[in-house]
C-alpha cells in the first residue's frame, strides 16, 4: 500500500494529466452529438446576455454596411409593392384567396455572436423559444442562406451556420431540375461545394444556385450562391461544383428565422411512408 502511494505520488503529474484529459475528451465527444441538450455554449442565458452587451458597442462599427444592405432589400421589396406598379387591369370581382395560404413566417433577429474561421461555426441570435423559435428551423439573411437553428434557450438561439461540417442544405441549380447537398470543407468561408449533381449537364460560371424547397427547412428559391468552377469531376458520375456563397458571414448582423407552418404535417406524412415500408 505504501509503495503504491509512493508510486502515485511520484508520477502525480501524469495521473492528473490523464484524469483531466479524459474528462475533456468526454466533453468533446458529447458536444459533437447533435441530439444532446446542453447549455454550456453561447445559447446559455449568461453568455448570451454578456455578448448582447458586447454587441451593443460593436454593432456601431458595422452600421454603415448594415444600412446599405437594408436599403438594398427595401428597394427590392418596394419594387414588389402593388402601389409601385401601374395598374391597368379592370377589377371584375374580388376573390377570397383560399389557394395561397401562408406557409412561411419570418422572425427577424439580431446576431449577437458569431464565429467564421473555426472548422465548425456557430451564430448566436437574440431571439429564442419565447419568440417561437425551435430547433431545426432555417435561417436566412437579406443576401442568402445562413444556417439551421441548433440550440434554443428562452431568449437566445444558436445557429449551426452553413460553415459547419454537419450542415447539408439541399440546393438546386436554377434552370435545371438537379439538386444536391451543399457541403463546406472548412477551408474558405466564402466558398462551399455542391455535391451529387450528375455530370452530363453543362454549367457556366456564374449560374445561380438556390434552395430546392425539397426539405421543410427552407422555401424554394432562396439564394445560396453562384457557380465558381464548373466541370470539376469528383471521381465517379457526379460533379462536385465549387460555389461562391451569397452570404458574407463576416458582415452578418441581421437574420430571419423561417417558421414553416406545414412542417409538422409534411414530416408526419413522410414518417408514415417510412413506417408502411417497414411493415
Amino acid at each position: 500500500m505504501n509503495n503504491l502511494w509512493r508510486f502515485i505520488n511520484k508520477y502525480s503529474a501524469l495521473f492528473l494529466f490523464i484524469i483531466f484529459f479524459i474528462f475533456s475528451l468526454v466533453l468533446i465527444i458529447r458536444n459533437n452529438d447533435f441530439q444532446r441538450v446542453s447549455t454550456l455554449n453561447t445559447s446559455n442565458e449568461w453568455v448570451g446576455k454578456f455578448y448582447t452587451q458586447v454587441n451593443n458597442v460593436s454593432k456601431y462599427i458595422q452600421l454603415d454596411a448594415v444600412n446599405k444592405q437594408l436599403v438594398a432589400e427595401n428597394t427590392l421589396l418596394r419594387n414588389q409593392l402593388k402601389a409601385s406598379h401601374f395598374d391597368d387591369s379592370v377589377v371584375v370581382n374580388t376573390i377570397n384567396d383560399t389557394i395561397n395560404r401562408v406557409q412561411y413566417q419570418y422572425i427577424g433577429a439580431e446576431v449577437i455572436n458569431k464565429s467564421v474561421n473555426a472548422r465548425n461555426n456557430y451564430i448566436t441570435i437574440n431571439r429564442g423559444s419565447k419568440h417561437g423559435i425551435k430547433k431545426g428551423m432555417g435561417v436566412i439573411c437579406p443576401t442568402g442562406v445562413v444556417g439551421i437553428v441548433w440550440n434554443v434557450s428562452p431568449d437566445f438561439a444558436s445557429i449551426q451556420s452553413v460553415l459547419h461540417e454537419d450542415t447539408k442544405i439541399t440546393s438546386s441549380i436554377e434552370g435545371t431540375p438537379y439538386f444536391g447537398p451543399l457541403l463546406w470543407d472548412g477551408e474558405n468561408p466564402e466558398t462551399a461545394t455542391l455535391a451529387d449533381i450528375p455530370n452530363q449537364i453543362n454549367l457556366k460560371k456564374g449560374t445561380k444556385i438556390s434552395t430546392s424547397g425539397l426539405s421543410v427547412t427552407f422555401p424554394k428559391g432562396i439564394a445560396v450562391g453562384k457557380v465558381l468552377k464548373a466541370g470539376v469531376k469528383g471521381g465517379g458520375s457526379f460533379l462536385n461544383i465549387s460555389v461562391q456563397l451569397a452570404t458574407n458571414f463576416y458582415a452578418l448582423q441581421y437574420v430571419y428565422v423561417i417558421k414553416n407552418i406545414f412542417a409538422n404535417e409534411q414530416q408526419n406524412l413522410e414518417s408514415l411512408n417510412k413506417k408502411s415500408t417497414d411493415e
Binding site: F17, F20, F21, F23, S24, L25, V26, L27, I28, I29, R30, N31, S38, L40, N41, T42, N44, V47, S115, A118, N120, Y122, S158
Partner: peptide
C-alpha cells in the same frame, strides 16, 4: 470553450 461553442476543445489543449 463556453464562449466559442467548442465544449472540451480548449480544455483538452490546455491540459
Amino acid at each position: 470553450d463556453v464562449f466559442s461553442n467548442t465544449l472540451g476543445l480548449h480544455a483538452a489543449a490546455c491540459t
